[in-house]
Design a protein around this nucleic acid. Sequence first.
DNA 1: AAAGTCCCCAACCGCTGCATT
DNA 2: TAATGCAGCGGTTGGGGACTT
Length: 304
Amino acid sequence: MGRAPCCDKATVKRGPWSPEEDAMLKTYIEERGTGNNWIALPHKIGLKRCGKSCRLRWLNYLRPNIKHGDFTPEEDSTICKLYISIGSRWSIIAAQLPGRTDNDVKNYWNTKLKKRLLGGRRKDSRGTHHRQGAATSNELENGDDGERPLSASAMERIQLCMQLQEMQNPLGVSHHNPLQLWQPNRQVAVTHSNNSNSSNSSHSSFNVTVAEHGQSSSLNDQHLSGQQLASPSSAENSNVVTIEAELQELLYSGTTTDSVVTTQQGEVDWWSYDQQGKSPVNCWDFTPETTSVYQDYTSVMYDM
DNA sequence: AAAGTCCCCAACCGCTGCATT
DNA sequence: TAATGCAGCGGTTGGGGACTT
């Protein structure tokens, strides 16, 4: 059985909002609130708009303390790190950026950051340009053992992961074929839960527990372990960089800086969000097919 | 200056989860 | 328990300004 439409599409106005409409909506909500019923709101105000449209207009443009304009490098970094961690869950990412809306962050990622990170070129150590290490989406999808279709978000996150790996270990034996990340025998402890206390997301939730770091980081056994990353002395002999520095290079073509990664020794620092989506808690919130990849590279790359 | 193309972003669409009946 | 309605979310679209030819 289909659902009745929330409004009469033939009579509601669509398209850009006029200043008069903005003023009517803003004034009403500031004086009386939304009444927790967006569908009824336009009728009360006298607006010929769909309730969903009113909600969107208020949340994305009219409500107080909305920040418009350029994103700061700190915001760029936050978006990138969270996107790598949790994917395209824009409401959660936006919650970490005061004044930014999920729509803003989504648009900014799709139009600016994604291109800078995944579509750009950078110089290698010999000063020559080359395409980034990741394969194209088609290449990934049509790989020899690539039976599993992946979301665009997962693809992008793998690509970004591989770029970061390449920067860490440009001459090493890192996994240039991302499909190798999807070995079916990779062991990850995943317990499903209808995770009402971990996120306000509509996605299914999975708590990931990593008991033994050594068992969980097979991807990078050959070059780095969590303990090595945590060791200041290792930084003297390797090109270990922080996730922040790597992102800075990808974003702004800056120069990477050797520094100490502060990963907790021997531990993988999984985190997710509390009920309000604000505070990190000790679990991940991934789909099962994406879990192992993030475990692999997150365990090596950084603590979040 | 005009036409074509690209890019950004506000707004819409449709799905999901939750609350209510 | 099932049906229904709503809020919230992420994906997508298209208008219009900016840029290029």
